[in-house]
Design a protein around this nucleic acid. Structure first.
Lengths: 188, 188
DNA sequence: CTCCTTCGTGGCAGTCTCTGCCACACGGCA
DNA sequence: TGCCGTGTGGCAGAGACTGCCACGAAGGAG
């Protein structure tokens, strides 16, 4: 058992994310104040900032989860695959996950795209992981701690391609998102 | 003649950017308040926000100039080059420009990298131009208004690679930055 | 040169995000 | 049951940013 305390906390946190997403989708990111979110989630503003470092991080949290998943998948890949294939599979998996949660994810990404102030940071968290991922890929084949620029460039390129797909997906431009993702990741 | 009014304005604006960069480099981005910058640049805070939508945009401005330059170069490219070559030349030119202004640019990029709050947005302006650039490339060869995903992915990939180089440059990791840039852009 | 229009500037008050501090209460534990 | 520790909420305050208004300086017409 997890302890009543932690369960309460987790519940309050999740409720806050839900309330925030709901309100953002309804009124737009900047029209919703932290106080509004707190009222809807029944917590005090002071507590909000204990859960999330900033207002924008309510949105970053789910994206962060995806990024963590990406890193995990990279690390768990069978050792006989080359970098490119490892990354391709990991991104494909994250893509599947996003498509599976289509509803909330779509809302999330659209909110992010429309929120001038926040548009940057969640995608950026992907970028923060570029170096980490390149490091894991290098370590996998026993390379040096500092990944060489080729590896970093390859990772950056694939993530950039993935972001283009994300963009398309958020705008619901395509009927077969996973098919498109496969094409994009294979395109080179 | 440009009119006294506009010259005064341009001068005050430039002085503000200089003062801000100076202070940021000295004390760090978040320790410097807008009021500090205004005191150093001899303008009122209210005026600061007329020049720049937000504190962070003082940093974004120079990067924005580079991005504009990039777009210009793309548009001015000879018509017989293919997309990839056009983009390669344009990025190479921007790279040269950055290396030439090494001092201020180095300061700028290092400030940006260290300022948690702002780290994201200036690079993002590059990303905002992805679609624009892809559009110009497509238009150049008489394609449709909406660039297809292949073009957008190619542009995104090259810009991502360029960002890796920028990162390296800002950290002064390499002795021959332009040589490295050529390798990175050719790497594919 | 003078008057009048126009537009940029600066000050003021107010909102919103975010932080440090402290008192309190509730869950965990003996 | 009673103590301890941690999470919570309230309060005050700093800093970013905005709408509003009054003033002054640039530019143009007579």
């Amino acid at each position: 058992m997890e302890g009543l305390r932690e369960r309460k906390r987790a519940h309050a946190r999740a409720a806050t994310v839900d309330a925030a997403l709901q309100l953002f989708a309804e009124h737009g990111y900047e029209k919703v104040t932290v106080a509004d979110i707190c009222a809807a989630a029944a917590i005090a503003p002071r507590t909000f900032f204990r859960y999330f470092p900033s207002k924008g991080d309510v949105l970053a949290a789910p994206v962060q989860d995806l990024a963590d998943r990406l890193v995990e998948t990279v690390m768990a890949a069978p050792p006989d695959l080359d970098d490119r294939e490892v990354l391709r599979r990991a991104l494909r998996e994250v893509g599947e996950r996003i498509v599976a949660h289509e509803g909330p994810m779509g809302v999330l990404f659209r909110v992010v795209r429309n929120a001038e102030e926040v548009r940057t940071s969640p995608w950026m968290s992907l970028e923060d992981h570029e170096l980490r991922i390149a490091g894991y890929l290098t370590a996998r084949r026993g390379g040096p701690d500092d990944p060489d620029w080729r590896t970093r460039v390859d990772v950056a390129r694939q993530l950039a391609a993935f972001r283009v797909w994300l963009h398309d997906f958020a705008e619901q431009r395509t009927r077969d998102p996973l098919g498109l993702l496969d094409e994009i990741l294979a395109h080179r």
